[in-house]
Design a protein around this nucleic acid. Structure first.
Lengths: 131, 131
DNA sequence: CAGCATCCATTGAGATACTG
DNA sequence: CAGTATCTCAATGGATGCTG
């Protein structure tokens, strides 16, 4: 019955497949955090840094650059002194943001269940150890 | 106007916040791949290994254990010789899977735009270098 | 302000070998 | 078959100091 079925899910398994790359992007903790922060509107570099808080300047810079490269964030520099730079989501990012929102929503409403599962699991493990 | 607003998005920024943990789970490349593979129905250890292909046995084992701990995957062992173990999604995982499906769907329909943005970006960069 | 360059510690993850 | 244990190397990512 169980035919081999080498690949499914587009070719998400194949590291060369572009779809997989999107997964990696979602998998990037900082990228997601930056996108969700920019959802509130355009923001400047140190502004983002402060709002995200835990991110290092190196990571923020790196993350913004890759997001810009992927066309999800746009960068605008104004020739003030000192220079002012503003980042904002592109229209392309819109659909992704909507999905990310669903993720956080799902997370918030199921964290309880997951933590409970975890406690149950760890408890069972402890019991097994004790026996 | 721009009031401080220390934290948003639940407390996703806070590493201690449980919501953040879900983000990390989604951020786990292997976890996502395993969940999506299990969507097709229950599967055994080496079965998963073959289907995912690129995953090492260590990572698969590790991933399955953490997914089980979080109550997203259940494990059933049958006392055959040699032992047979079957993994399957729990009901809790159902909603998450639906969102992951949306992610892959979005990915597949926007990969083109992203690759184009990237080419444009890299091209512009190359031009700047040449100038 | 908005970054880049460098150094360094921690972690991630593959390969390999072994067990019930 | 379904894992565990160990070793090792590469990549993450933080801290620091500097620049236009």
């Amino acid at each position: 019955m169980t035919m081999p079925q080498p690949l499914r899910i587009g070719d998400a398994y194949n590291p060369d497949c572009p779809t997989r790359h999107i997964l990696d992007r979602i998998g990037d903790k900082w990228a997601v955090l930056v996108l969700l922060t920019l959802k509130d509107g355009p923001a400047r570099f140190n502004d983002l840094r402060r709002r995200i808080g835990a991110i290092s300047q190196k990571m923020l810079s790196q993350t913004l650059k890759s997001l810009e490269r992927d066309g999800l964030v746009s960068r605008a520099a104004f020739p003030t002194v000192p220079v002012t730079v503003e980042y904002r989501l592109t229209p392309l990012a819109g659909g992704l943001i909507r999905i990310l929102d669903q993720v956080t929503q799902w997370a918030e409403s199921h964290v309880g269940a997951i933590m409970a599962a975890r406690r149950a699991h760890d408890g069972a493990l402890a019991d097994a150890m004790a026996a």
